[in-house]
Design a protein around this nucleic acid. Sequence first.
DNA 1: TATGAATGAGTCTTCATTCAT
DNA 2: GATGAATGAAGACTCATTCAT
Lengths: 219, 219, 219, 219
Amino acid sequence: MLKRETRQASGSSGTESASRRGRPPGDPEVKRAELLKAATSVIAREGFANASLRKVAQRAGYTTGAVTYYFANKEELILALVESRFDRYDAMLEDIQAETDIKALLERWLHMTTGDPEFLTVMSELLAHGRHEPALASVWRRRYARFRQVYTSILEAGQARGTVRKDIPADLLADQLSAMGDGWALLFPLEPERFTPSRIKDLVDAAIALIAPASGTRR
Amino acid sequence: MLKRETRQASGSSGTESASRRGRPPGDPEVKRAELLKAATSVIAREGFANASLRKVAQRAGYTTGAVTYYFANKEELILALVESRFDRYDAMLEDIQAETDIKALLERWLHMTTGDPEFLTVMSELLAHGRHEPALASVWRRRYARFRQVYTSILEAGQARGTVRKDIPADLLADQLSAMGDGWALLFPLEPERFTPSRIKDLVDAAIALIAPASGTRR
Amino acid sequence: MLKRETRQASGSSGTESASRRGRPPGDPEVKRAELLKAATSVIAREGFANASLRKVAQRAGYTTGAVTYYFANKEELILALVESRFDRYDAMLEDIQAETDIKALLERWLHMTTGDPEFLTVMSELLAHGRHEPALASVWRRRYARFRQVYTSILEAGQARGTVRKDIPADLLADQLSAMGDGWALLFPLEPERFTPSRIKDLVDAAIALIAPASGTRR
Amino acid sequence: MLKRETRQASGSSGTESASRRGRPPGDPEVKRAELLKAATSVIAREGFANASLRKVAQRAGYTTGAVTYYFANKEELILALVESRFDRYDAMLEDIQAETDIKALLERWLHMTTGDPEFLTVMSELLAHGRHEPALASVWRRRYARFRQVYTSILEAGQARGTVRKDIPADLLADQLSAMGDGWALLFPLEPERFTPSRIKDLVDAAIALIAPASGTRR
DNA sequence: TATGAATGAGTCTTCATTCAT
DNA sequence: GATGAATGAAGACTCATTCAT
């Protein structure tokens, strides 16, 4: 009772309905997506350790209760978040996979992952935290395994086509390249000024050179 | 570091017995080190997000007050922790650096970093968290830069000696290898079962192959 | 009770088909009864303190809104629940009351109250909580008084017939026996393993002996 | 910050230290006892279901944090509370046990249990809630068993002395009397006006008559 | 008639920090 | 020098209740 008055007092427009309760129109999936987006924002900006449901709700323009209405748990929210991020990544990879030129492919991949600045940041936060949340860890293992497979088959195709060195099995190369990617995803937000576009280009070129077949010395 | 001066200033008494073996039992530096060790343990086991000063105190067998007595802040504790971990890493690198054979060197590095199972874990936790704590981030930038230099000079020596490929500048190679290492430090705790000794050996061998000069025997 | 009038006022339509067997599916009273049954279940299993409207709705297979639609309040639901449980108890007592043999009567009472395992549990939960909800307390007082009257008249009949001791007024005996019953209803769920069938039989026999007239054969 | 001002605003004396932190003198056991007393009050007044740590803290004049400082858990607080109540009851029983006259003993017991009006209320609240908290239930089972033993031996002594009927085993009598007591503890707060001193006297006298040896009819 | 989205107060709990002793 | 009692804010979560649809 007391509280309600307080709330109304701080309401801006006098003509607007004082209560925000009741059933507004809208698809629950949309709201869930909104909340996941807000969670992404919060985690990207403040980090996993500092992300709270309250902040997520605030950023989404909801109350805390709304978040726990759509997600039973903080854990469930996080899991839904990882899955959704992976889904997006999946879709993006789909597009790229057709590219046969390994250099072009890597560049598109780079463009894709760095296109949404929040994406890599959130992924690395979630990855770093995965160790402590068994359910999260298992999602990572499951989905990460799929990506290694995709990478591996891409590299195998490259080996067949002669654009990727054959002396190292494709799965090891995939493992190494994705570890490298994870490392950068971790380092990038720490010292963004070091990762200038030209530095990034050099690193990508170097990566391509690393996995290219031995060409110059003997051919 | 910030507050260490303060502590020492009020702690260095001229009457201290110099004949005792090592530092006297009440030595603040010893206690600080003990607390840092406890902090390492706690973070390694429970993760940065779940590590609290209380847990650190408990693990060290100290009282809650002791932690804030020896460290003004949680932040200060964390900073001291990173510095101390880097100091240790520095010392370890010193030993290794003399090794000229690049393969032997990498293997010693591997042995060294994985020797203390808590080490890599804590480092990756702190690295992942660095982004959100400006002071921590700056420590990382400063000290990480030094390591890249060391790595670079090692790789340059290898290039000079002909054991490392010359088509990629040493600093790019260093960047890539350390990113790879960071990636693995992150992935390892997530799926330790995937990193069997033989898989690790393969990955290291593959890494060596990656940076090796294009040999005449291979095709 | 408070709001039942309101409901019925708006619910009794004259066009309702009278030929259908029982009440039509949409009958509010049926839904209310279903919800009360669900509430019984929830309270019996989880206890009054842990029972929430949401759980009741869930168990009944209704939506959250349905509960507050059929019952204005949580309090109203509880009151309706007590009344309905008492109604049932009333009906059960009706059947038994005819029994003239006091031992047979007690045994039928026992059989009756323990027949539905949820019954006693819910009653004791509601009884224990009654104190804190004035409306609930008043229901208890009113209906409990009636039962003491019934018990008293049964015992008086026994006294007249010579099967119940006459040195203690029937109302005091009724008070004592019902207190005993309440005590057991409270203790039973706490240590069910202690209340084996044979122990229960002994306790009932002893209770009968307690209220039996001092027989000539004893001592 | 905001809160502190509020706190200070309601502080009485202007010269008192604004902060209440730091280490005041005092025995932790005393504080624990204080908190238990506050918990007793709250539960007695508002019931177990409505008792919150906040209310306990408030009544004791502490903040919520203080309660969880002295008791790790709400559960731990409750357990400590039951144990302490039982300890008190134990001590009281000790005093009484020497009484050989069964009537005098019962009256002293009555006097004792009703002396502190909160005592019985809290006990019945805790008893009623015991079912849902395994740890609490086990404390009840353990300690309640002891009392039944004491009661049994008192009744056995009565039987040996000829003041208690011998046709019902003492342990059954103990069981019945304590159930009766629990029942009354439950009913009393519900309708205190019914339990006038004279009614209580009658009930006690009737109870004594119930367990007295068959005297009038044949001797 | 009935739904279910959303609220907002309240629950327990954890925690960094402060400070009298 | 060191302790540990106490704070107060924040955390996740639950829940009765409201109400647009």
